[in-house]
Amino acid sequence: MKNEKIKFKDRLKDISSGLGDSLKESTLWGSIFRPGSPFRKGYSDSPRNRSYVVMNNVLYHLHPVKVKRHGVRLSYTLCLGGLSFFTFIVLTITGIWLMFYFRPTEMAYVDIQSLQTSIAFGSLVRNMHRWAAHIMVLVVFLHMSRVFYHGAYKAPREFNWVIGVILLILTLLLSFTGYLLPWDQLAIWAVTVGGNMAGYTPVFGAQVKFALFAGLEATEATLLRFYVLHVLFFPFIIVIFMAIHFWRVRKDGGISGPL
């Protein structure tokens, strides 16, 4: 009796491993997982496969195959650049989710309220979006300080620093335009303060303020304007600059240093 049980177990094991093998040998599987993928048949941890892992994956190949040894120390970069990018991705995902439940009209405040009270995970996702936004501003600024303290803006990386400053400004603009969207007292008055500051621009201050507010003061027209800027225009611009930024990191010789 016991013998038969073991036999049955072994048989099951054989069948399952055989299925796995034939699946991995199939054309479909091999066409999905490119060489170097740990899911591919016959994967082993070799220098060749370590290179393939990076080269043959659309996301990973943002990185070069090899990096300077000092650059992988967490204490060198604190992963601040990577975390800036990651918070941006988190914000994109949660932001798209929030767009399903939000109308940039006089209904905006009601939508936020119902998001918090009657939509599954609505409160959590809104909180994540908001805190991630604050964290992104902080992390981008810390990244900038880290780069300064390492002197990483020096030749040949001068222009990438300029792009980095543009990215910081875009981050602030993204955060600022998003600030108005809940359409509560905090939002409207913070944006009024900010918009009034911009109104002090010499010579054409009134025009700047009018363009920003889509009128003389923060109204629902401003809300729509900020919404479009927040969900489409600035993300579009910042992605272009991020692409240039990452590309330049590699073109300028990878991470700076060692100190």
């Binding site: 220098p47 370590r50 290179s51 892992v53 990076v54 990973y60 990185h63 070069p64 195959v65 090899k66 990096v67 300077k68 040894r69 000092h70 650059g71 992988v72 967490l74 992963c79 990577g82």
Partner: peptide
């Protein structure tokens, strides 16, 4: 002195 991105950089990331 260089190391493989995978796993030395991507794991900490």
């Amino acid at each position: 002195d260089k190391v493989n991105t995978w796993p030395h950089l991507m794991l900490p990331e």
